[in-house]
């Protein structure tokens, strides 16, 4: 019993002593009350699971440039919505509607992406536990 406790104790200590550099989160959480529209030049694309990322260079009124990341669904979900990797290229101007991250970082949950050809696709990550898509339909009439 003592040997068991010692060995298990060591394993537990080893697991929590591991370095925890949490400054870069894998999936930022978003705020339903802070919608935003970004218009910018696409600088890079990560067409990956579990999330895709579209990096935009956004220019403000003073001409200052900041880079934003827009998090979307994985390749399977995007392709099922008619959005393929070849629809966009680095250098394209994209309009991305989404929600700001609670952490305040320059990353948004991309709910809607307007492509260079004018098409709009849903970029949202379904079932991510984040805010519901309030833009999906107009307020329902009272019964």
């Amino acid at each position: 019993m003592k040997l068991r406790a010692l060995v298990l104790g060591l394993a537990l200590t080893a697991s929590v002593a591991a370095p925890a550099s949490a400054h870069h989160s894998f999936a930022a959480m978003y705020d339903a009350n802070r919608p935003i529209r970004l218009v910018g030049r696409l600088t890079s694309v990560e067409w990956t699971n579990p999330h895709s990322y579209f990096h935009l260079e956004v220019r403000d009124a003073q001409g200052r440039v900041t880079t934003w990341a827009c998090e979307g669904a994985g390749p399977g979900a995007l392709s099922r919505r008619g959005f393929s990797r070849s629809d966009i290229s680095v250098g394209d101007t994209l309009v991305v509607d989404g929600y700001l991250a609670k952490s305040g970082g320059r990353i948004i949950d991309a709910r809607r992406i307007t492509l260079p050809d004018g098409r709009s696709v849903s970029g949202g990550t379904p079932g991510d536990g984040g805010p519901g898509d309030a833009a999906a339909r107009a307020p329902r009439p009272q019964a």
């Binding site: 379904p126 079932g127 536990g129 805010p131 519901g132 898509d133 309030a134 999906a136 339909r137």
Partner: peptide, 10 residues
């Protein structure tokens, strides 16, 4: 209940 619309539309 945390977001019924999402499921209604799915």
């Amino acid at each position: 209940s945390a977001g019924p619309l999402k499921y209604w539309l799915n």
